[in-house]
Design a protein around this nucleic acid. Structure first.
Lengths: 180, 180
DNA sequence: ATATATTCGGAGCGGTGCTCCGTTTTTCAA
DNA sequence: TTGAAAAACGGAGCACCGCTCCGAATATAT
């Protein structure tokens, strides 16, 4: 990558982070380019789709979530590992608003730039769930996709001002249901 | 209301119903006006906001949901009434896509045209929940807003193609958790 | 038939996502 | 150091969006 290209890439990513924190996942791309003092062409060359931009923003966090699952699996009891990771997964989306919609649609869209990261998270969670199920610590009538669905729907609740304050308690309730 | 005005009003509502079923709650208003062979001014005079248009589309269904709660309260056991109504509430959003987001934000936006209908639904559900709680049939660590939140999040799941097929089963699970 | 009150329609404004291409800048070999 | 090839740049332009505003058209009441 050419030196000036890398400079613009980094600058775009930094500005995009601010913009998405402030305005959510559908922040204006034109505004991001403007604030980064860069043309639209430059933005689109580096990030051909909105998903590509968000993937660059989220990938480290998503990978960390995947990694966290493996750590918990190695160090904690099946039930605690699942419960802790579930809470963490719901809390994750708190930084950026409206991201969970894109993650949900990325799951069954193989062409989405977010597809790989999201399926990795889902798989990591599925492993935790299966281990808990084998240990008799989690109900057996749900699977990894259900787990992701429940996490996503709670994350969506967190995006709704009317419900945000109740997410922590409801997450606890749902987590206990899964472990029941 | 003048005769031609009523004609346009009805026509707009009919076309809007088709458009929202086809494209969801953020269907193009310009396109609705075009298909109804009406100018933008006409559309905005009859429905000053998008919420107003959706309110006109949803009000009968929302009122029916509110009414259904009262019927169930009068005819069915507390537990069954709550469970049945919960399922019905989740299923309701299936007709139009993306409506649940607007309903959620309408809850704490007193100026939204959907505010009244949505709070009515919430209150009706809250009564069912309280009756079940008093009968010892429902857990007591959630309230009417939590109930609405859970219904809304499951409705949101139904809007996500990746999860839609699991909504019925997960609704059952959550309903049982509430009754537990 | 006329006058008044209503309703109509669409041009226009500022915004969006996205593409395309002439211009500029970097790089690297001669 | 220089010059040409390669790479990246930026923004004008297109089609769409929500929304407003107002002169023209139309229905109603007298």
């Amino acid at each position: 990558m050419r030196a000036d290209a890398k400079k613009n890439y980094d600058r775009l990513l930094a500005i995009a982070r601010e913009a998405v924190i402030e305005h959510g996942a559908d922040a204006s791309l034109r505004d991001i380019a403007r604030r980064a003092e860069v043309g639209m062409g430059t933005l689109y060359r580096h990030f051909p789709t909105r998903e590509a931009l968000l993937e660059a923003l989220l990938s480290t966090d998503l990978d960390a979530l995947t990694e966290k699952a493996k750590q918990l699996q190695a160090t904690t009891s099946p039930a605690d590992a699942l419960a802790t990771w579930f809470r963490e997964g719901v809390a994750f989306t708190r930084t950026f608003g409206g991201v969970v919609d894109l993650m949900a649609s990325a799951l069954d869209d193989h062409d989405s730039a977010l597809h790989a990261s999201c399926t990795a998270v889902r798989s990591a969670g599925a492993l935790l769930l299966e281990r808990a199920q084998e240990a008799g610590a989690a109900r057996t009538d749900i699977d990894g996709i259900d787990l992701f669905a429940l996490m996503a729907s709670l994350a969506w609740l967190g995006d709704q001002p009317a419900f945000a304050s109740r997410v922590d308690r409801l997450s606890e309730t749902i987590a206990n249901t899964i472990l029941a």
